[in-house]
């Protein structure tokens, strides 16, 4: 995860796994003073008292008004819960705040709507139906956070990403379904994440669920998807074979479109990247005008 600090330097935060998989991970930071050409030696952040185990980062960092950095993190050791770290201008941890507790929330994504108002959306890792994205909110610049509650967005225990646009709209990319990761949607909210409207369903292979999907049919379908994504793709079969190597096991194959990451560039364009069948990273770019047009076309669609 990357943030441009108040002094213009880029700070990169990433997960380092030592022992025992994700439970044994910690967050490491490195800094670039020259827009990514060179990087300082990596530095481990100390964020938990128990051998510094189990802190992971997935959500985009952000800057507070005083130049300190907010870093949404989560734990996956004994419990699964979200936290918000605060780092000073040198990158030292100066505070942390729990966004949830227990064993069912992961990967907080913080969306600040104003100097005082923000929400955080979290992946739901629990078993209780309905499986929905968890939402917490603050009205006092993060001094206090509400208790987690289920939002209107479905979530199959999968990562999501979001961004707040200049007009206050919140845009989120996620698997808006309760099981599987074979559908990926872009949704928008005008009211701080209370209600949502689907902007576009980017990927959807839910119709093939329950049907026997052999390798030949999978290759054909993914080839079509690759060609539809980019007509200039020279050889869609290469994409299909790579996807099949990841997604075909035993008797059948499946689809997965996951781990979205959404940002808005300085020129206003919105970039979305996501994992395409565990074999490629797909990049989708659109602008505010396209988004506004989509939302006006969807004006009468029901919200959820």
């Amino acid at each position: 995860m990357v943030v441009r600090a108040a002094n213009g330097q880029i700070r990169l935060f990433y997960v380092t796994v030592s022992v025992g998989g994700w439970g044994g991970s910690s967050v490491t930071m490195t800094t670039s003073p020259d827009d990514g050409k060179t990087w300082t030696p990596a530095r481990r952040l100390i964020t938990t008292p128990f051998f510094n185990l189990s802190t992971l980062v997935k959500g985009t960092p952000f800057l507070y008004a005083d130049g300190t950095i907010g870093l949404p993190v989560y734990h996956e050791f004994i419990g699964k819960f979200g936290e918000l770290l605060r780092l000073d201008k040198t990158g030292a941890v100066i505070d942390k705040q729990r966004l949830s507790s227990g064993n069912d929330s992961l990967q907080p994504v913080l969306l600040a709507q104003s100097d005082r108002k923000a929400i955080a959306l979290m992946r739901y890792a629990g078993d209780q139906l309905p499986k929905r994205v968890l939402r917490v909110s603050t009205d006092d610049a993060g001094q206090h956070w509400s208790r987690p509650e289920k939002s209107a967005l479905s979530n199959p225990n999968a990562a999501l990403s979001g961004v707040v646009l200049a007009d206050g709209k919140i845009l989120v990319a996620l698997n808006d379904i309760e099981s599987g990761r074979d559908q990926l949607s872009l949704v928008a909210s005008h009211d701080g994440g209370v209600t949502w409207k689907t902007v576009i369903t980017l990927e959807d292979q839910t119709a093939l669920r329950g049907q026997p999907l052999d390798r030949a049919r999978f290759l054909e379908t993914t080839g079509t998807l690759a060609r539809d994504s980019d007509a200039t793709v020279p050889n869609p079969a290469d994409y299909s074979r790579a996807a099949a190597a990841q997604m075909c096991r035993g008797a059948g194959c499946g689809f997965e479109f996951s781990y979205p990451y959404l940002i808005q560039a300085r020129n206003g364009d919105i970039h979305l990247v996501y994992t395409w069948n565990r074999s490629f990273i797909k990049h989708v770019r659109f602008n505010q005008a396209w988004l506004d047009q989509r939302l006006s076309e969807k004006g009468n669609d029901p919200v959820h």
Binding site: T48, P49, F77, I78, F81, I94, R98, S101
Partner: peptide, 20 residues
Amino acid sequence: VFYPLALGFGPFDPYRLGYG
């Protein structure tokens, strides 16, 4: 008492107190 709470057993995080 400290380690279970700090590792997520409940909403209270005593580790946060250590930041001043």
